[in-house]
Computed example of a mutant assay.
Amino acid sequence: MKNKLLYFIICSLGLAYFTSCKKSNYLTDGGLSEAKSPLTTYEYLKQHKYHLFDTLIMVIDHYNMKDEVNGAATFFAPTNYSINNYIRLKRDSVRRINENNTYTLTNMYNDIKADSLRIYLSKSRIELTTAPLQPTLVANAANTQTAFQRILQPKPGESWSSSPIYYLYYIKVRGGLDPPNSTVQPNDPNIDLKAQCQTTGIEPSSGGMLHVLSNTHTFIRF
């Protein structure tokens, strides 16, 4: 009986170890196993298996920006959620005027221009591992002020790794880049707005870098 119990314990520990090792493969940037993709940036977004960029592809197609997206040195891609966040905000705004009002993707096309999407097309190749720890200006295809930064994340109490964890942030600069370590008021209209990347380091076959912004990001507004 003892031998059977010991055998059961050993098998259980072995299965637990195997399972934990298998899970660890999915702990990097949402499970991206290969940084290099045989697809172009546009193809990668269009063929995403979870259809995370279907609305973004519609916006790209509407403004005929496929070649611009493929040719960007870095593309910070907003997801469907990000664009829907913007549409929902606008819908809530017009319904405060009249509860029967609505706001759709077609309305958004009437309100914004292609430069709204060009904000996300950086003219420089940006990578997480080489990104500066302080906000640094970077030119974009819309010729507006944007910046990027790598930020060290607080380590949780029960961390599975002793390695430091950094996230890449894309920044919409308003009224000049905020000084490092400066204290700003939350309602300051000139405060810079940061969007965190949930996945980084995708290298499409068309060249450049592709980073995916967090689903909580709001298109254009950050």
Rank of each mutant, 00 (worst) to 15 (best):
L56S: 09
L56W: 03
L56N: 07
I57F: 09
I57A: 10
M58F: 12
M58H: 12
M58R: 12
V59Q: 11
V59P: 15
I60D: 06
D61S: 07
H62C: 01
H62N: 10
H62V: 05
Y63M: 00
Y63E: 02
Y63R: 00
N64D: 02
N64F: 04
M65C: 07
M65G: 01
M65P: 05
M65Q: 06
K66P: 08
D67Q: 04
D67S: 03
E68L: 00
E68D: 01
E68C: 00
V69P: 01
V69S: 02
V69G: 09
N70G: 09
N70S: 03
N70E: 14
G71K: 04
G71F: 10
A73F: 15
A73W: 14
A73C: 15
T74H: 11
T74W: 07
F75P: 13
F75M: 06
F76W: 11
F76C: 11
A77R: 04
A77L: 02
A77E: 00
P78F: 05
T79S: 08
Y81K: 00
I83Q: 07
I83F: 00
I83V: 06
I83A: 00
N85V: 01
Y86T: 12
Y86A: 13
I87H: 08
I87W: 10
R88H: 04
R88S: 02
R88A: 00
R91L: 01
R91F: 01
S93V: 11
V94K: 00
V94D: 06
R95N: 05
R95M: 09
R96I: 12
R96Q: 13
R96S: 15
I97A: 06
E99Y: 07
N101Q: 10
Y103M: 05
Y103F: 03
T104W: 13
L105M: 15
L105C: 07
N107E: 06
N107G: 11
N110V: 06
N110C: 02
N110M: 01
D111S: 00
I112R: 07
K113D: 09
K113P: 00
A114T: 07
S116Y: 11
S116R: 04
I119D: 02
I119R: 10
L121V: 11
S122Q: 07
S122E: 12
K123D: 15
K123H: 08
K123C: 11
K123T: 14
S124L: 13
I126F: 12
E127V: 08
L128K: 02
T129Y: 13
T129L: 14
T129M: 12
T130R: 15
T130Q: 13
A131Y: 02
P132I: 15
P132N: 14
L133W: 11
Q134A: 09
Q134P: 01
Q134D: 02
P135G: 07
T136W: 08
A139G: 03
N140H: 13
A141H: 13
N143G: 09
N143V: 01
N143D: 12
T144P: 02
T144W: 05
Q145F: 15
Q145I: 14
Q145M: 15
T146I: 03
T146E: 10
A147M: 06
A147H: 09
F148V: 04
F148T: 08
